[in-house]
Design a protein around this nucleic acid. Structure first.
Lengths: 342, 342
DNA sequence: CTGTTAGCGCGTTCAC
DNA sequence: GTGAACGCGCTAACAG
């Protein structure tokens, strides 16, 4: 009973393969009785159509893809759920693909588009720069999220959409807030690598805020994280190193909530009270930031809305009721308990 | 320039399609020069082989699948990373599939097996019971993780492998630990639904520990969580409800670390000190449990080892150097700071 | 080393 | 309403 195919089903039912095909795919012009008989046999035999063969022929197939750069990143978790829900509501199929750190998400998209019959693609995270040529090769509309609008040259901005927040601006807002609380020696825990990531903009915002308020940048207070910016341990280790460096600071701004929570723990271990002795700020506004002890002062990205809007926009473009757009959501400064006036 | 295929590449290079195929697939018997010429043309044209067509023909294809039930569950994140690494080391391709809450993971596996050319399947999480018949339909070896060995009837235990911990036993261990600290009124925050989930066993362990030590079960201290057991908010809300119920308890045992961290926050908000006024215990031993304030007393599942062993075992079965096995890892009682002697 | 050819399993014309 | 035949793009035999 190896490899049961549509032909086998057809034989057993005494019908042609196309009839079976019609039964499976809910085509209208088929005798309900014939259909029932076929479906019964399918149930019995446990026949499962081969998707590869289907994709090869299919023309319609309402399917959209979500490519997630770093699926283990907790920041994307709620976004994925929102996208799944939205897509399902519209009766589209969803294929989710994990993009490895070393992969280029647009390359993966190109490949996936050949394999499946996609109608559109949503990117969650990923590199901030892409070749305009490659994006153009994609034949279906794409929406980048959590990435700004300057992914490729301005010339090609109408080839793709983006939904994001203005990272530099929001970061600026946070640092300015800390300054308004009286902090001058503000350390920042930031990304270490030099990839053109969105996260670099958070550092930019930091530098600009200091500059605006005439605070001299102390290079020793810029603490790069070794690799991943979404692990508690890196937040912890980097904070310890900062403490041990003996450098003076009254506030620590971490470019992710996860890092900030790791920092909280490091301060606790060092007997340094937050916010009495030092202020801590995060970024992202993940669920975790509202449940830490103390609650984090952070920039809340409207992740759910970004995901929702990205999906809506994609469908609008697919349905030709919208052109490509570049939507920027405002972030929200959440004043938690981890930062206070000096 | 629509839909460029292997035929097109062959034409442009003035060679046969099979030569192009050989070039793409790194076959040995091909002239390096020819290969280079072909690869150049492929680069130029941006040709990407159609995976569906490939899957249809391919016989070898070293590929294994990982099916994750609830990909947004932070517990699986490190496991996914371990599996990815192990699989890559062996030069196998990995396809990861997210199994929705309403989907049956074995059904999904069946489908995927038809579509791709799989050599084996690893399940991360999922239902604790499966039809033996369905599992038998899978033609490649499967390993279930974080799920005990009694998935189907004992008769078919040699049809699949499992790698897990003994949830009932570990849970028992934790509750006994709390009892040894002098606690008698131990509340438990547990799963609400009645699906035959692995998590039910944690409740079983709780009940057994109480029984052994002659502590009468107080139904009002068994607090079901509304749906998801991996959200901070549910931990928070359920704890609040418990506090407000006025029921007397000196310890709260949560069947996941995430719930426990939510509980910590709820106690903090209520002005109840942990562990001075109440002890809190978690389960899982996720990274988070080591960074919360206070650190959690919890049962550490060796998630990394489970993932590693599951992958190794799968490859051993594929390579015929092992039969199906049922491996049970010990959990580790981590004495954090959230529980103390009464 | 390379070209020719036969399917992989299915959806889609077309006839009937 | 239904069946036969064709081909999607590719890989794997088999010749040469």
């Amino acid at each position: 009973m190896s490899e049961i195919t549509i032909v086998e089903i057809a034989k057993r039912c005494g019908v042609g393969v196309s009839t079976v095909s019609r039964a499976i795919n809910n085509h209208s012009d088929i005798n309900p009785e014939t259909k029932k008989r076929i479906m019964d046999v399918i149930k019995e035999t446990g026949y499962i159509p081969n998707n590869s063969a289907r994709n090869l022929k299919r023309t319609d197939a309402k399917c959209i893809a979500v490519l997630v750069k770093g699926i283990t990143n907790s920041f994307f978790a709620p976004m994925i759920e929102v996208v799944e829900q939205e897509v399902e509501e519209r009766k589209y199929a969803l294929v989710m693909r994990h993009v490895e750190a070393y992969e280029d998400e647009v390359d993966v998209a190109l490949e996936l588009e050949k394999e499946k019959r996609l109608r559109g693609i949503i990117f969650l995270g990923g590199s901030a720069r892409h070749s305009a040529d490659k994006i153009k090769q994609l034949r279906v509309p794409v929406v980048f999220t959590t990435i700004g609008s300057d992914i490729a040259d301005d010339l090609s901005r109408n080839e793709y959409s983006t939904v994001s927040i203005d990272d530099a601006k929001e970061s600026f807002k946070m640092v300015e807030h800390l300054i308004s609380l009286g902090h001058k020696d503000i350390a920042i825990m930031t990304e270490g690598s030099d990839t053109p990531s969105i996260v670099r903009l958070r550092l930019t915002g930091y530098l600009e805020a200091l500059k605006k308020h005439g605070i001299k940048v102390n290079e020793k207070l810029i603490r790069p994280v070794d690799k991943k910016i979404y692990t508690l341990q890196n937040g912890y280790d980097t904070t310890r190193a900062l403490i041990e460096s003996g450098e003076k600071f009254t506030a620590l701004y971490c470019i992710s909530d996860v890092l900030a929570v790791g920092a909280l723990r490091a301060f606790a271990d060092a007997g340094i009270r937050v916010p009495e002795d030092v202020s801590v700020a995060g970024y992202d506004g993940q669920e975790l930031s509202r449940y830490s002890v103390p609650r984090l002062t952070t920039i809340k990205q409207p992740a759910d809305e970004i995901a929702k809007e990205a999906t809506k926009l994609l469908f609008n473009i697919i349905d030709k009721v919208s052109d490509h757009r570049h939507i920027v959501f405002p972030g929200e400064l959440i004043q938690g308990e981890s930062a206070k006036k000096i």
